[in-house]
Nucleic acid binder design. Structure first.
Lengths: 226, 226
DNA sequence: CGCTCTATTGAACCGCATCAACGAACGTGG
DNA sequence: CCACGTTCGTTGATGCGGTTCAATAGAGCG
């Protein structure tokens, strides 16, 4: 999951349609994991590619001097674990319990043997690349306020539950995860959330659940509307 | 070309080995273009994928409110133009005259028809994803000084010409391009360059050519060495 | 020569990081 | 059951890094 930049809100849900149904994978196996489990670590031999069926995953990288960047959150439909020269190039663990489809990484090297799976993975990689390009915008060209607003909107589009008083959005990740994903600090995440709350755009029912009260307003903030 | 984060300098050149020789592409066609030519624009139907043979390309995205992010610079060996749902998802133009191998985008959808090309492109996409993850580090977790230092080192590893007085690095892109790539302003790029010059780490022979005088020193700065 | 575009440098402001304190939620053990 | 420590989120005060605005210099070109 990347928080993608979009021209206007109506495009949010449609731009990167995610098939929540399982695609045709004669090669896929199912797997269930608890919260807090490590799926793979940077440098591990990459034999498996994971497709999220339910739950939320975290993909991150760490530098030798301790700085961390959360590369992506894996939501249902997302595919994680693309290898580079046969090795994983990031760490991946579960934020919630999750069900996963497990695909053979070999499909990427042998298109003739796994043509369907290869085509599917190629499509996912292309989406990944496009989403990451969007996320560059986020990291490089947005203020903290815009980042947090866009983040909530993206989560809403991916996993929001519409209700009577606005759309409810779960935050299975903690503030540090959000901060490391957006390239800001936890304190700033907190401040921006309270700022959005003061503006009447969102409501924090609990620290782990946001209710979006004013979608167009939040969208305006996210896109730098002055 | 993404400025990738590396543990130490010696890994710089080797981490993402680039084959400067042409890979086996019975499907590839050659093409030569002048500087300043637009290869494709976001939203265009993507029929071709480009592999840089010589020259430097620029891949960028623009938002409706005018903010631009340079997504990547395309150096020899790089592949640009991965489609999303059959459309290009960024703008691409040439910073210098360039020679390109042109591959059919169809190879991504029909692995059985173009198995070799598909396997090649899959490998390139995986590298792309890994490099972009590295670049997230850059955008989200580095200071301006570190960004500029890392940028020069990355260009050096990709296109540096070693000589008597340090390694010469061409900057075919202007300061605005560098700024939009690193997520800072042109003024800051300038300031950081003069700061690195004052520290004796680099020399600016012309605004378009840098000479790296102290590789370990510059590497230390790039990685946040205090 | 004058015009334009790019790069550099300076000065002032401000957004965000940093450091610090505090409260809430949760678990553990007495 | 409550005292206690721990973790996490929030809020405040302060300082700095980088932006913004502005001026100048240099290069390319009609």
């Amino acid at each position: 999951m990347y928080v993608t930049y979009q021209t206007n809100f109506t495009e949010f849900g449609d731009a990167h349609p995610v098939d929540l149904e399982a695609p045709p994978h004669q090669d896929a196996k199912l797997r269930t994991v608890r919260a807090g489990q490590i799926l793979f670590t940077e440098g591990d031999p990459a034999r498996l590619i994971f497709r999220v069926g339910s739950g939320v995953l975290r993909l991150s990288r760490v530098t030798e001097n301790g700085r961390r960047q959360v590369v992506a959150f894996g939501y249902p439909g997302d595919v994680l674990g693309f290898p580079l020269d046969g090795l994983y190039c990031a760490d991946c663990d579960t934020l919630t319990s999750a069900t996963l489809s497990v695909l053979p990484a070999l499909a990427l090297e042998h298109p003739l043997v796994y043509p369907q799976t290869t085509a599917f993975l190629v499509d996912r990689m292309a989406r990944e690349i496009s989403s990451m390009q969007d996320h560059f915008m986020m990291l490089g060209r947005k203020s903290a306020q815009e980042k947090v607003a866009a983040f909530i909107l993206a989560l809403m589009a991916r996993a929001g539950r519409s209700g009577v008083s606005g759309c409810a959005v779960d935050l299975p990740m903690n503030r540090t995860d959000i901060a490391d994903f957006l390239g800001i600090t936890t304190e700033t995440v907190s401040r921006m959330l309270t700022s959005l709350r003061s503006a009447g755009l969102i409501k924090l029912t609990t620290p782990q659940e946001v209710r979006v009260l004013d979608v167009p307003g939040l969208s305006r903030v996210a896109h730098g509307g002055d």
